[in-house]
Nucleic acid binder design. Structure first.
Lengths: 200, 200
DNA sequence: AGAAGTTAAGTGGTCAGACCAGTGGCCGCT
DNA sequence: AGCGGCCACTGGTCTGACCACTTAACTTCT
């Protein structure tokens, strides 16, 4: 078949290569040049294939170092928004709402599962929206939730910039320390949800 | 940051371009050469960005013709991911938990936004888990939530089959009719969450 | 000998230019 | 009007070049 595209073929060949070599997270793949050489294709085709693998979360590229297998769990769902990213105000509203709802949900879940170590990690986080909430979502012990939230945040930050007053972080942390789900929720609703609903 | 990668930037620029031009499914995008020219980047960077958009199911390329917007909904990405899912127990647990949490959240949101028409649509739904909850998630008026839920369900149904006793649907519907968020939540937690937590 | 600074090789990231292989419209011929 | 061929344009691919960055080996100085 001359009709099948090289970069698709290459995608699957690299995938097969990974499986057969039994590459584990952290392992290095051959360089782009070597792959191109070995698979008898141009480097640009290799790169387009690697782009796909990267989007799927299977690999990670580091300039100057090489291409590496990513720890599992990192794949998928990065894109469900993909089918979504075009379009207008309606979708942006949905994006904001979804992100807020998920954050409140994660906050409650994290509160239930809070431990002293997690509390310490959150305390050490920058008092910045993204860093702070990332620790909170991580504290849910649910990697899928983290992935979804990261995607939402990624898209969100292309549209908005939000920052909270520092007392908000402190109040939230204290609520978490007391394992008070209601209080944490109240702080979040007061500082984040109301703020966002005013601005839109 | 000079370090941000061109093909990532290009990805977002093309995305923005699609938004601003209000391109609809079937519409043609500028040619790769014109995009490269207009965005002042190399054609290979444009191609790597287009590869991402293609994998996300946003666009479709036809050799000799051009690049076109694709009707969304058919995410080939989901099927692709299927072959990549490592069926670890950790991932399954996260999937179940996330789905349940999102459904409870959607149930509450739907309750807040319930109207008589939506109530009627839910009443007409099959008393089957997927159909019933789809109507509920639809009733949130949040398309993004629907998309996420559909993806989660898609994966979920590859792993489990769940069905509820018919009185569960009736009780939930009655709660929705009364716009009683607490009652709906209680029914969900009793019939769905407890059931699932026992089985795992 | 050990520490500090320098160099060189290798890697991903990007670009420009070339050619191939399809598509479709234009033009002239019959 | 209908046919056929030409040609401009499109995506697909390859090559070679250069940049930015990392690493490790090498030199140099103390």
């Amino acid at each position: 078949m001359t009709t099948s595209k090289v970069y698709i073929e290459t995608f699957w060949q690299i995938h097969r290569m990974i499986e057969e070599a039994g590459l584990q997270p952290g392992d290095r793949l051959p360089s782009e040049r070597e792959l191109a050489d070995r698979l008898r294709v141009g480097r640009s085709s290799v790169r387009e294939a690697l782009r796909a693998l990267e989007l799927l979360g299977l690999i990670e590229t580091r300039r100057g170092e090489g291409t590496f297998m990513k720890p599992f769990g990192d794949h998928q769902l990065i894109q469900l928004l993909g089918s979504f990213i075009l379009q207008g105000n309606r979708e942006k509203r949905d994006l904001i709402e979804t992100k807020l709802l998920m954050e409140r949900m994660c906050l409650q879940l994290a509160c239930k599962r809070m431990t002293d170590e997690k509390l310490e990690r959150i305390a050490q986080a920058d008092r910045m929206y993204h860093s702070f909430f990332r620790r909170i979502v991580e504290a849910t012990d649910n990697y899928l939730l983290l992935r979804i939230w990261l995607v939402l945040s990624d898209f969100f930050e292309h549209v908005y910039t939000v920052e909270l007053p520092s007392e908000c972080y402190e109040q939230m942390w204290k609520a978490l320390q007391k394992r008070s789900c209601e209080e944490a929720t109240a702080v979040y609703e007061q500082y984040v949800m109301q703020k966002m609903s005013k601005e839109n």
